[in-house]
């Protein structure tokens, strides 16, 4: 039996938005530690890894580890039926094929219930090639700062953030650099990752030459995180 109650559905809504941007369905692993997910997009270019600790729920009960195959769009539709300050309860039987979701208004005068059918997810599902990629962004990190540059068909653009400076919106930028590095990525995916921005005030980009980019957003005060991994573009 799995049962978890969250006092505010906002985090779950933002989290599902941040996941649905990359994947259609995923296996959500439920254990006594909380809820986690790791899934690649259909083209195997990017990966999303999410963890929401049991502390995000009260109470959180998980008698046996479960893997729930969830169609993210469907869950998103159900979540849209809740108000932001609703209390949400998730329930699943150990051998069931349904995830029950209950939303209650804080004063208890309204309650809505949904039963979502779980799907068997074939982890080895064949990937579809993406025929077109968006434009590329090159990220260059040196001791002077962080520079994003895009070469388009008709125009070029670049943005630079300095180590001790502040971004346009006044947010601080801090850089922890071992070696300078330059990597190129498909902008399209970075745009997808920004879907997670409402979950956190700060984003951390980790880059190393010839390895995937890691983009991390922390969830709440130690409640968990969502991380995206993105394969770089390679020189031919």
């Amino acid at each position: 039996m799995f049962e978890a109650r969250m006092s505010d559905t906002t985090v779950m809504k933002r989290l599902m938005d941040a996941i649905t941007t990359l994947i259609d369905d995923g296996s959500f692993d439920i254990s006594s530690k909380g809820i986690s997910l790791q899934a690649m997009d259909s083209s195997h270019v990017a990966l999303v890894a999410m963890c929401l600790r049991n502390e995000a729920f009260d109470p959180f009960r998980c008698d046996r580890n479960l893997s729930l195959g969830i169609q993210c769009k469907q869950m998103g539709k159900i979540l849209k039926c809740s108000a932001n300050n609703d209390v949400m309860t998730l329930k699943a039987e150990d051998d069931g094929d349904v995830l029950n979701m209950v939303f209650e208004s804080p004063n208890g005068d309204r309650m809505s219930e949904f039963a979502m059918k779980l799907t068997d997810i074939d982890i080895e599902q064949s990937c579809r090639d993406l025929s077109n990629f968006g434009e590329s962004v090159t990220i260059c990190v040196t001791k002077d700062g962080l520079k994003f540059s895009v070469k388009g068909d008709s125009s070029n653009a670049s943005m630079k953030f300095s180590q001790n400076g502040a971004g346009d919106d006044g947010n601080d930028v801090s850089i922890d650099l071992n070696d300078p590095c330059t990597l190129t990525f498909a902008v399209k995916y970075l745009n997808h990752f920004t879907k997670a921005a409402p979950l956190s005030e700060r984003v951390t980009l980790s880059l190393s030459n010839d390895t995937p980019l890691v983009v991390e957003y922390k969830i709440g005060d130690g409640l968990g995180h969502i991380r995206y991994y993105l394969a770089p573009k390679m020189e031919e």
């Binding site: 690649m40 270019v45 498909a186 394969a231 390679m234 020189e235």
Partner: peptide
Amino acid sequence: ATTQGRLDSFFKVS
């Protein structure tokens, strides 16, 4: 010219 890398070449995918 650049080609899009895939995560499979960086991680062992089981």
